[in-house]
């Protein structure tokens, strides 16, 4: 956890954001932000999946358990899914899953769901900056870190 050590040195809390994105829209959108040389907050780590429909709710819980302070799920816009309807599945699952997450004690401001297309580099940048700011204000997510310890212990 070199990164944490570094932030501890500077004193300011820097949140860790995990992003689960689909291969076809958001991943390509994030790539475009790069090729356009846009700049955004470095706090995000992307995990690429074929489709947001592939995202198991457990991924999100595990991300929090492993030290994420915020999680982003982003895929193609409704109607644009590379797999026709995969993102609709993700959206439906999200609706059902949201209340469960709230129940398990996750502040919903830490969990974001968005559509970013392959051409929306600016939206991606704004999104990451926005989430980083918001989670930074919320502070570190510590509730699950104990769990990880228990499991390992």
């Amino acid at each position: 956890m070199s990164e944490h050590a570094q932030y501890e040195q500077t004193g300011a809390f820097e949140p860790k954001i995990m992003a689960f994105v689909c291969n076809w829209c958001t991943y390509a959108g994030a790539d475009l932000a790069g090729t356009s040389r846009l700049e955004y907050r470095p706090n995000v780590r992307i995990i690429k999946l074929p489709c947001t429909g592939r995202i198991d709710p457990l991924f999100i819980i595990k991300a929090f358990e492993n030290g994420a302070d915020g999680v982003l799920v982003s895929g193609c816009h409704p109607g644009d899914c590379h797999y026709t309807t995969g993102n609709y599945h993700a959206r439906r699952r999200w609706i059902a899953f949201k209340s469960l997450m709230e129940f398990t004690g996750i502040d919903m401001r830490r969990l974001h769901f968005s559509w970013v297309s392959a051409s929306e580099a600016i939206k991606w940048v704004d999104l990451i900056n926005g989430i980083t700011e918001e989670v930074k204000i919320l502070g570190p997510f510590v509730e699950y870190k104990g769990l990880k310890g228990e499991e390992n212990g």
Binding site: P50, C51, G53, R54, D56, P57, Y83, H89
Partner: peptide, 8 residues
């Protein structure tokens, strides 16, 4: 087509 919707 490998979208993985079924997996989730």
């Amino acid at each position: 087509q490998g979208c993985g919707v079924c997996v989730a």
